[in-house]
Amino acid sequence: MDAVEYLKQKNRMTNNCTIACNTCPLAIENNNRNLVCSNFVRRYNEEVVEIVENWAKEHPEKTYKSVFLEKFPDAAKEDGVPVACVVAVFGEKKKPEGCYNSITCSDCWNREVEE
């Protein structure tokens, strides 16, 4: 796991540090080191990365693509993404900023679904 992926997954795991501390694997209650999370992260880098990696494996990112293909596994795909427009399929009110210019259909389909 590279640094960018680690940070992305850590932020996803902690919901940008807004989840209840007692539910966070890095928290003092859960890290088996009796350290507040900031100290745990500073002192036990390898252990923290392993915790985040394992969490990410156990909690795969739910994307528009994964949700759609779970329901319609035989849907037509191009370059690995459905040929239908994600905006039309999921009934979004407007296309994401940059549609057709700076983002691709793949970028759009691979966005994380917010519960």
Rank of each mutant, 00 (worst) to 15 (best):
V89D: 05
I28F: 05
E61L: 13
W109A: 07
I103M: 06
A84W: 03
K71Y: 10
P73K: 05
V36F: 08
Y100N: 15
A84D: 09
K71E: 11
R33T: 10
K10Q: 14
S38Q: 13
Y100D: 14
K93Q: 14
L35M: 15
R42V: 08
K65H: 12
C37V: 00
V41M: 15
L26C: 03
C17M: 12
N30G: 06
N32C: 13
V49H: 07
G91V: 06
N22G: 04
R111T: 09
N54K: 15
F72E: 11
N22L: 09
G91R: 09
K10S: 08
Y44N: 12
I28Q: 11
A75Y: 02
Y44R: 02
P73R: 06
L7G: 06
I51W: 01
G98F: 05
C85N: 08
E97Y: 08
C99E: 01
K77G: 04
A88F: 09
C108K: 02
V4E: 15
K57D: 12
C37G: 05
T104M: 02
E78K: 15
K65E: 08
I28A: 11
K10C: 10
E5F: 07
K95M: 10
W109Y: 07
Y6W: 09
F40E: 00
V81F: 03
V49E: 14
Y44A: 01
L26H: 01
V83C: 04
N31A: 05
V83T: 15
T23H: 01
N16F: 13
Y44W: 13
R42I: 05
C108W: 02
I28S: 08
D79Q: 10
F90Y: 15
A20S: 13
E92A: 12
E5H: 07
E53P: 01
A75C: 09
A88R: 14
S38T: 14
N101G: 01
N31R: 05
D74R: 04
V81L: 00
I19L: 04
E46T: 11
D107L: 02
D2K: 08
V49Y: 07
A76M: 08
E78D: 11
S106A: 14
T104N: 04
A27R: 00
E53S: 13
Q9V: 06
N31K: 00
V83A: 01
H59R: 07
N30D: 02
V89W: 00
E29K: 10
V113C: 11
K62Y: 04
N34A: 12
T18L: 07
L7H: 11
K57R: 14
E47R: 01
R12H: 07
V86I: 07
E70Q: 15
R42P: 04
C21R: 02
